[in-house]
Write a protein that binds this DNA or RNA. Structure first.
Lengths: 203, 203
DNA sequence: GCCCGGCCATGACATTCGTCAGGTCGAGAC
DNA sequence: GTCTCGACCTGACGAATGTCATGGCCGGGC
């Protein structure tokens, strides 16, 4: 193993990707060997360059950063994964940890944390942004798979009848799922339910 | 006037703010004299430092970048404003131009565009991201002020009764506004209306 | 002055949504 | 075996939402 940490960077916003890549490359012990603008390109880059660390956003076109982590989890010789994201959503953190992610850093943090996280993760450590300790106690997703599925479609603005058609359910069933979701989340209607679930990273 | 362009940078995400500031400062002819994490801090920084150019995000806590542009528009000796934002929303661009913004750049663009835009705007030019030429033809906001106001509350998940109470209207009136909005946008219900209007930058 | 068009506002009516009281099925406890 | 529990599914009923027909108000043509 060489003494330079080889990094692949996945981030969809061009300016942010460019800026992070340039700054990381300025660090003498870090080298950005490839960048990718979406999840699929990131996967190809990892396969090709076999980096030590994959630094990835969550919300990207194609495969999300969480999908990436999941797919790499059971590969031999996989890179350590650091997620860099905008939102302190407890659901995202939980899923990231489930997929064996080694670092979870918020874009809100100062820029030095980035190189820092890369180094500590490469050294075998774990890095979780302290802000997340709080968000983690927003509680855990109380929805069943079916309920989540229905809410996801409702959040897009589909009327119950169409949701029912797509899932091959009776319309009353759809209404009932939404009703239990609304009760579980302690809100007043589907719109609030969708907002809350999105905010928590449950959709 | 000195030959170094003095810039104030407003951007709420710490990492992005730090990265952009460092990279701009590396340019010999640009100096970042202050950074701000929200709209109000940005306004204070501009008043204090009197920069040549204000580089600002749109979506920030406190005053948005568009609010900033509006407030600075009629001040004497105001900086030229460049908006750097994530979304190619036609409504944002239109409002930015209405407020006399000199540059509108997308975070999707390559990082060199940033310093580039600062220079060209400081030289008296205008910079509009080419991607926006397309988005501008998504059409113009067909809603009246009242309709927009009602839709904004509906998008938060408030039931009609509460929207009516807040705006001192009859519940039937609220229903009617939402109905016309739904018709104007060509969608099926309030949820789709809210999604579409948000996507276009009309809320 | 008169008419017209746009915005604002309303109540009555039809449709959609949310709640409730059930019923089926399978997995695990005893 | 059977009991219990939770996930899944359903129809009936009252509550919220969406539609329509209508009227007041104001500012701009003519």
């Amino acid at each position: 193993m060489s003494d330079v940490i080889r990094v692949v960077l996945a981030e969809d916003q061009g300016m942010v990707r460019g800026a992070f890549a340039q700054l990381l490359d300025l660090e003498p012990d870090i080298s950005v060997v490839a960048t990718a603008a979406d999840g699929d390109a990131a996967l190809r880059a990892v396969r090709e360059h076999r980096p030590d660390v994959l630094l990835t956003d969550i919300e990207m076109p194609g495969a999300s950063g969480l999908d990436l982590a999941a797919r790499l989890a059971d590969e031999p010789d996989a890179p350590r994964v650091v997620v860099v994201t905008t939102f302190a959503r407890s659901g995202y953190l939980r899923r990231a940890l489930d997929h064996g992610v080694a670092g979870y850093v918020l874009k809100d943090a100062p820029i030095d944390r980035l190189a820092d996280a890369v180094r500590r993760v490469h050294a075998g450590g774990r890095v979780i942004d302290p802000e997340l300790a709080v968000a983690a106690w927003e509680g855990t997703d109380p929805m069943t798979d079916r309920e989540r599925e229905v809410l996801r479609l409702a959040a897009e603005g589909l009327p119950n009848a169409e949701i029912a058609a797509r899932l091959h359910l009776a319309e009353g069933t759809v209404r009932n799922y939404l009703s239990t979701v609304i009760a579980k989340l302690g809100v007043r209607n589907r719109v609030e339910a969708a907002r809350l679930a999105t905010e928590r990273g449950w959709l």
